[in-house]
């Protein structure tokens, strides 16, 4: 009975093939260093889930952002846990992605035919940093406010375009409700969408090329 259903679905969806490609593909001799990409992906999913839960109570307005987070921490059951995971997960994700990048660099895995995997990886690293930068403002406390003041001010020092970039980031010359709102939008929609898209291509390429052999002394 179950077999019939399974086979019917499999003929149309190709589970088995998918399973082989995703979880049972041939690998060279690998080490724990090869798990860092998957660990980054796990954290991305975790951040996505806890982030969705945070938006149930969080309010991106200067009047309420701080209080709504206070409420999550003290008023809501397990709010501290959900926010805690998201908070520490953010830092951990930046570290993991960076270490993953270092390992790919040191094992020279960025060479042909994986140059695109590497370039897309750069995109992944930058968007991950973008997540951290935009997320940091959301609690709208002193640290968040001044960190974003400084961060956007630095972006403003770019020659010629600086002032435009600063205004585009802040939604005006100074930090305001517009800044908080656009950082929120970037943090929950724009950057995650980019990140997910890049991750899709990254994973496609990894499945297509397989993991690289680590170089040996002879290489």
């Amino acid at each position: 009975m179950w077999n019939t259903i399974y086979n019917w679905l499999d003929e149309r969806l190709g589970f088995n093939e998918l399973y082989t490609n995703l979880l049972d593909r041939p690998e060279p001799k690998t080490t724990w260093w090869n798990t860092l990409g998957s660990a980054s992906m796990f954290l991305f999913i975790m951040q996505g889930l806890t982030g969705i839960f945070l938006t149930v109570y969080y309010t991106p307005s200067p009047d309420h952002a701080y209080d709504s987070i206070q409420y999550i921490m003290e008023g809501v059951a397990f709010g501290w846990l959900i926010r805690g995971i998201h908070h520490w997960g953010a830092t951990l994700m930046v570290i993991l992605v960076f270490v993953h990048m270092l390992r790919v660099f040191f094992t020279a895995s960025f060479k042909f035919p994986r140059e695109l995997t590497w370039l897309i990886g750069i995109g992944l690293f930058l968007t991950t940093l973008g997540m951290g930068f935009t997320g940091y403002l959301l609690p709208w406390n002193q640290k968040a406010y001044w960190a974003t003041t400084v961060g956007t001010q630095i972006a403003g020092t770019v020659p010629f375009l600086g002032e435009f970039i600063l205004k585009a980031l802040r939604g005006g010359p100074e930090l305001s409700a517009l800044t908080l709102q656009r950082f929120f939008s970037a943090h929950i929609w724009i950057i995650p969408a980019l990140l997910a898209g890049l991750m899709g291509v990254h994973l496609y390429l990894i499945i297509k090329h397989g993991e690289s052999h680590f170089p040996t002394k002879e290489d």
Binding site: L49, T50, F53, V56, G75, V76, A77, F78, G79, L81, I82, I85
Partner: peptide, 15 residues
């Protein structure tokens, strides 16, 4: 460990 608290987190105002 994460899923069960998440449910309570969601329905907390109703409790």
């Amino acid at each position: 460990v994460v899923g069960l608290p998440a449910i309570f987190y969601l329905i907390d105002p109703a409790l």
